[in-house]
Write a protein that binds this DNA or RNA. Sequence first.
DNA 1: AATAATTTTTAGTCTAGTCTAAAAATTTTA
DNA 2: TAAAATTTTTAGACTAGACTAAAAATTATT
Lengths: 219, 219
Amino acid sequence: MAISFAEENYLKIIYRLSESTSDDISTNAIAELTQNKAASVTDMLRKMSEKGWVNYQKYQGVRLSEAGEKIALDIVRKHRLWEVFLVNKMGFNWDEVHEIAEQLEHIESEVLIDKLDAFLDYPRTDPHGDPIPNKKGELPQLGYIPLANMPMGKAGKLVGVAQDSAVFLQLLTKLNLKLGANLEITEINAFDLSVSLRIDGNPPVLISHEVAKNVLIKR
Amino acid sequence: MAISFAEENYLKIIYRLSESTSDDISTNAIAELTQNKAASVTDMLRKMSEKGWVNYQKYQGVRLSEAGEKIALDIVRKHRLWEVFLVNKMGFNWDEVHEIAEQLEHIESEVLIDKLDAFLDYPRTDPHGDPIPNKKGELPQLGYIPLANMPMGKAGKLVGVAQDSAVFLQLLTKLNLKLGANLEITEINAFDLSVSLRIDGNPPVLISHEVAKNVLIKR
DNA sequence: AATAATTTTTAGTCTAGTCTAAAAATTTTA
DNA sequence: TAAAATTTTTAGACTAGACTAAAAATTATT
């Protein structure tokens, strides 16, 4: 079944929202990320539900179906591989590549993506540390994930960092974030994706999304 | 002024048609290449004329304006650079890359194209021997062009070939196409782009587009 | 030059994807 | 738990870009 750019975007965004919660995804949340109005989202959800890509009940939010998740993972795979290309081969900084990858992820050619994957030496994560699904849609078992990708309420152990700039490591020290620390996310703020974090059972402290992305944890 | 995929495609196709004639381009010719109906083309030409990208007079055909040609050359530049990438870096054959490049040519990022250009070592031609415009929209002076790119009625001298497979060179010999031969195109068949060619003043013989693309001439 | 054939344009329709305004359902608050 | 606030949906409208059918203009043919 043919799929449009718009549909691909909706699926990708529902996937992204699903990554950080196990609840159903709300119309408003999708509207914000797609930059559309809620009414437009409702309409699209109805259509995608008919195509079998999402499970959608009026007023109850939405969830990807298995078929929808497969498509979403394929788009995520393309997005992240292109990001690796842009950073490793084209010399972009990791903070410059998102918009371009948003365009490249819609290029349709399985062969191209396989060749790109090989050309990049089969990377397991993108420049931001996010895992790259394989062509079957399976996420690599990394043994760790960025703290930023851990769902709310879950706990894990700090096992590494994705960056080793001096300023970053100094900040970790100041926050009392050491290797082996037990971490639990108590809140994720939608506005800036900053995270309230309980460290070794102490009262939660606030850390930025930027920091959370570079802290690697094992569940 | 924002430009859509559809508009970019029309401009590119009008440019391509202009390359092999100095006449105004007909609605039907555009319809065939865009795979649209003539009525749709008329409509689009009217709109693009209002935006100043083409000079269009009802029933009289169309021609790119200076602004339109600038845009078209930019798309052609992107298309051809991506083709080089696909062949030289991704290992595609030169006959497999067109459809993918048709998609990639619409990616919007000047910086990316500049970096790609550098990454590819500033190629002057694409894998088919077609010249790659620079970022100002200027075509490189190659000193030669593929015979397939020579306008009808013009003459030139055979100065080289773009391929040296045995079968190709044997065919040239059979056709009496030698270095230094004086060539004049007497007809281009729209159906298969095959070319009627007068060699050293002899009666014209027919050669395929495939051959014409690999024969290099100096005007 | 008149007629026939072809090309191009006009007029009206359709779909995808968006929007606004208002109605309906759900959630929060007092 | 009733009222208020918020979220979501419905209904109807709009635009870009396509289409078909018929009319108009151009080109080719007797």
